[in-house]
Simulated scan of single mutants.
Amino acid sequence: MSDMKLEVLVLPVSDVDRAKEFYENLNFRMDIDYVGDDGFRVVQLTPPGSECSIIIGKGVSAAEPGSVQGLHLVVFDIEATRAELVDRGVDVGEIFHDAGGVFHRPGSEGRVPGADPERGSYASFAAFSDPDGNGWVLQEIKERAPGR
């Protein structure tokens, strides 16, 4: 099968400039800020080290602002990344792992405080939201599963 690369996620926001400032504060690279004559606006930003970008704007989504949940940013060191984001003024929740030991559930169900005791890849998380409530999760991966 041909390669299929996920390269863009569209996030619904209510205030494009506020969202743009938030993501630039996270050190997302600003790729495009296009404004059309009719008020249409596309802002594309890319997280550091990522090949997948986000698009925010006006007229780019019919979804309710803040309705996108469960977006994951994979990091090598969750403690250092969380500390850096907190230093940048982002309200990042405490680090947690799932009671079942695999993947977190929505909301706070099954969350156990602290990083995974064995510090296994894919098992430690911390959550935050953008100003509209779009939900993000940091996920620590130090070693990829075979074949990835």
Rank of each mutant, 00 (worst) to 15 (best):
Ile95Glu: 05
Asp87Pro: 02
Ser2Ile: 03
Glu24Asp: 08
Trp136Phe: 15
Ser53Trp: 10
Ser61Asn: 10
Gly39Ser: 14
Tyr23Met: 02
Ser2Ala: 07
Asp116Asn: 11
Lys142Tyr: 03
Pro131Trp: 00
Arg18Gly: 00
Glu118Ala: 13
Ala123Glu: 12
Ser14Val: 01
Ala115Lys: 13
Pro65Arg: 01
Arg18Gln: 07
Val16Gly: 14
Met1Val: 07
Val102Met: 10
Glu21Trp: 05
Asp91Lys: 15
Ile56Leu: 07
Arg105Gln: 14
Lys5Gln: 12
Met1Gln: 07
Gly120Thr: 04
Ser61Met: 11
Arg148Ser: 08
Lys142Phe: 04
Gly110Val: 10
Asn134His: 03
Gly93Leu: 00
Asp15Lys: 05
Ala62Met: 08
Pro48Met: 06
Lys142Ile: 02
Asp33Phe: 06
Glu64Met: 06
Leu9Ser: 07
Ala145Lys: 14
Val112Cys: 05
Ile56Ala: 03
Met30Asn: 08
Arg111Trp: 00
Ile141Val: 14
Val92Ile: 06
Val10Lys: 13
Leu138Trp: 09
Lys5Ile: 08
Arg148Ala: 07
Ala115Gly: 10
His97Leu: 05
Leu73Pro: 07
Phe76Cys: 03
Phe40Cys: 07
Gly59Asn: 13
Val90Gly: 10
Trp136Tyr: 14
Leu45Met: 15
Ala19Pro: 01
Gly49Ala: 10
Ser124Ala: 04
Gly70Arg: 11
Phe103Gln: 12
Arg144Ala: 03
Glu51His: 14
Arg144Asn: 05
Gly89Thr: 02
Val35Gly: 07
Thr81His: 15
Arg111Tyr: 02
Arg41Asn: 10
Lys58Tyr: 12
Arg144Asp: 03
Arg119Glu: 08
Gln44Cys: 06
Met4Pro: 01
Ile78Arg: 03
Arg105Val: 06
Ala145Trp: 10
Val16Cys: 15
Glu7Ala: 13
Met4Leu: 12
Ser67Cys: 05
Gly147Gln: 08
Gly39Gln: 14
Phe125Gln: 00
Pro131Ala: 00
Arg88Ala: 13
Pro131His: 00
Glu64Asn: 03
Glu94Leu: 15
Phe22Lys: 05
Asn27Gly: 06
